[in-house]
């Protein structure tokens, strides 16, 4: 055996930045995550040229999936042009030579922080969600070793109790984003922190969703056609954000998740959070030829 056999010719870094051993590890762990939907698979999580907490988990998965024919969309809070989304997209271009798109329907690979696009993802698309805290039990059990036992026993009683206490105190469930949800009837996940609006999009989806927490070093997945049920009581239904009836200031379109922009005098205006979807509506209004994908919601209600 010689050093030459062990190494590749020198280059500044690998295609996709990560070296082969890092990619193999993420491949191994991603496959385990797909095999046990919702189970958090520990992985080494290499450092990448971005600070931890800035999408390094999602980035490692995206880098592993990257190929020159990939068409990549990166969003942060629904926006393609949020500075961190721009930075990640720029990095993917540098190390992957991939094509970029803002259009959800044109992407093969979507890396997102905190949102699932409004246009329905297809079976040939992969959604990679950045996750700050993968542990749905964190709020009730900060010790991860204890939490692991609870997952092993499917013991989610404390989570139910937490929701029940919210109802007693506040008259409703007060969970915001990252609503705890039962995957494949077995593992409760913290769905990234996507808003409640987006959680039903994971249920029996056509696409594969991979969730990756770089700092906390966990990968988990929701394969296509998998049950995802937000924890709710028989008599107190799961409720998405009350955005169905409000129109987007930019596009005039109603029925999608919104950003609220405070204005002087106590007023607010609302804009669609999926910014490129709003842009497409504006383009259409201005007479441009635009094609829309199917949407998860129609007129503000889930279309199933």
């Amino acid at each position: 055996m010689s050093l030459a056999e062990l190494t590749a010719p020198w280059q500044r870094f690998n295609y996709g930045f990560l070296d082969e051993s890092a990619k193999r590890e993420i491949r191994r762990k991603t496959l385990k995550a797909i095999a046990v939907p919702g189970y958090q698979v520990p992985y080494a999580s290499r450092e990448v040229p971005m600070a931890r907490g800035w999408g390094t988990g999602g980035l490692q998965v995206t880098l592993t999936l990257l190929k020159p024919s990939s068409v990549v969309k990166v969003i942060d809070q629904g926006a393609d042009d949020s500075v961190n989304a721009v930075s990640i997209r720029k990095f993917l271009r540098r190390v992957g030579g991939v094509a970029e798109t803002l259009d959800t329907t044109a992407a093969t690979l979507i890396q997102s922080r905190h949102r699932i696009p409004e246009e329905k993802l297809r079976a040939d698309q992969v959604l990679v969600l950045q996750v700050p805290d993968p542990e749905p039990l964190r709020a009730v059990e900060p010790d991860i070793s204890e939490a692991r036992h609870m997952h092993a026993d499917a013991d989610y009683g404390l989570l139910w109790l937490k929701l029940y206490e919210q109802i007693v105190r506040s008259g409703r469930i007060m969970e915001g984003a990252s609503y705890p949800s039962l995957v494949n009837g077995r593992h409760v996940i913290s769905p990234s922190p996507i808003p409640r609006w987006d959680v039903p999009k994971l249920h029996q989806a056509d696409n594969l969703t991979i969730l990756s927490a770089g700092r906390e070093k966990r990968i988990y997945a929701v394969p296509p056609h998998t049950d995802v049920a937000p924890l709710a009581f028989d008599d107190i239904a799961y409720r998405v954000e009350d955005h169905a009836g409000i129109a987007c200031e930019r596009s005039g379109v109603k029925g999608y998740f919104l950003n609220e922009l405070p204005k002087g005098g106590g007023a607010s205006v609302y804009e669609m959070s999926d910014t490129h979807f709003a842009t497409k509506h504006i383009q259409k209004r201005e007479g441009e030829a635009v094609s829309f994908g199917a949407t998860y919601y129609r007129k503000g209600s889930l279309a199933r």
Partner: peptide, 20 residues
């Protein structure tokens, strides 16, 4: 990294909690 990540926008998660 996590400490400085709080500078990033969090308006989606904030909106979700505000709604409740």
């Amino acid at each position: 990294g996590f400490c400085i990540h709080f500078k990033m926008p969090h308006y989606v998660t904030f909106q979700s909690s505000l709604d409740a």
